[in-house]
Simulated assay, not measured.
Amino acid sequence: METDLILTDRREGYRVITLNRPDRLNSFNEAMHAALMAALLDAEADTDCRALIITGAGRGFCAGQDLSDRVFSPGQAPDLSSTLERLYNPLVRKLRELQMPVVCAVNGVAAGAGANIALACDIVLAARSAKFIQAFAKLGLVPDSGGTWFLPRLVGSARARALALLAELVAAEQAEAWGMIWKAVDDASLMDEAHRLAAHFATQPTIGLGLIKQALDASQTNDLSQQLDLERDLQGRAGRTPDYMEGVMAFFEKRQPKFTGKA
């Protein structure tokens, strides 16, 4: 029986969540889905947690779906729609709606749903040895877990189509050059950089950062007038937070602000 499929390391102001099936390249089975969602919900409920790092144990980030978890009888057609509706779609939605920054540290391969779960995070760092692949076409499937939404917005239509149809590997430095991820870093520096970002976010105005995430996501479908209205409404909420007042006072007093991230 598998245990500790997800590891949680609590740091000051943030948490590190590690996918922990290294013998299977951290591919997803139902138990790991449940454990990851529980870890995300627990972090979300912790008012002292103001940022997350998500990474993988061993030599890979996540190889997507564990195909051995989808055993079915000859002639039986699996219901992959149900798998997405129950497991992957709620996971991607939760990652996007978390009101704190989520840093993904991609160590090694990120394939299929594993690649798209990484892209669902706010800031993606990748070791220079890491690779991304939309492996779905090799199995006659459609990119899921948000792949057909994230890719065109990150790399453009032409590259998204080629990546989805050809299922070719993209090295970390190429992913950075294309704007698929934030930054490629030396393998030995990956977690140090991830911790540096998370520790920074743990000192920042968390509510305001969450509102920034909302605004950026909404801009993908809003027209300009709708986005201006949303900015107005979100700015009104941000301006009523204690962190805004602290930021203003710190500016005038020429000191570093002490944000609490609290409402």
Rank of each mutant, 00 (worst) to 15 (best):
V71A: 13
V71H: 15
V71C: 11
V71Q: 15
V71G: 14
V71I: 08
F72Y: 14
F72R: 13
S73H: 10
S73I: 11
S73G: 13
P74Q: 06
P74E: 15
P74R: 03
P74W: 07
G75M: 05
G75P: 04
G75H: 06
Q76W: 07
Q76T: 14
A77L: 15
P78W: 12
P78R: 12
P78G: 05
P78V: 00
P78A: 13
D79K: 07
L80A: 11
L80Y: 15
L80N: 14
L80Q: 08
L80D: 04
S81M: 03
S81P: 00
S81V: 13
S82W: 10
S82H: 07
T83C: 12
T83L: 14
T83A: 14
T83N: 09
T83S: 14
L84R: 15
L84G: 14
L84V: 10
L84W: 05
L84F: 13
L84T: 13
E85R: 12
E85W: 09
E85G: 05
E85Q: 12
R86M: 06
R86G: 07
R86P: 01
L87K: 03
L87A: 10
L87M: 03
L87S: 00
L87H: 03
Y88E: 13
Y88W: 11
Y88S: 15
Y88I: 06
Y88P: 06
N89K: 14
N89T: 04
P90V: 03
P90T: 01
P90S: 08
P90I: 06
P90N: 04
L91A: 10
L91Y: 08
L91E: 11
L91T: 07
L91C: 08
L91P: 02
L91K: 01
V92K: 15
V92Y: 08
V92A: 14
V92E: 07
V92S: 07
V92F: 06
R93D: 08
R93L: 06
R93E: 11
R93N: 08
R93S: 10
R93V: 00
K94E: 09
K94I: 09
K94H: 04
K94D: 04
K94P: 02
L95K: 06
L95Q: 04
L95Y: 00
R96D: 05
R96C: 02
R96W: 00
E97P: 01
E97G: 09
E97K: 15
L98N: 10
L98K: 14
L98E: 05
Q99D: 11
Q99H: 14
Q99K: 15
Q99F: 03
Q99S: 12
M100F: 00
M100L: 12
M100C: 00
M100T: 07
M100Q: 09
M100E: 05
M100V: 08
P101R: 07
P101I: 09
P101G: 00
P101T: 04
V102E: 04
V102W: 06
V102S: 08
V103M: 00
V103H: 02
V103C: 02
C104L: 04
C104K: 03
C104F: 09
C104G: 00
C104E: 01
C104N: 01
C104T: 12
A105M: 06
A105L: 01
A105R: 05
A105Y: 01
V106Q: 01
V106G: 05
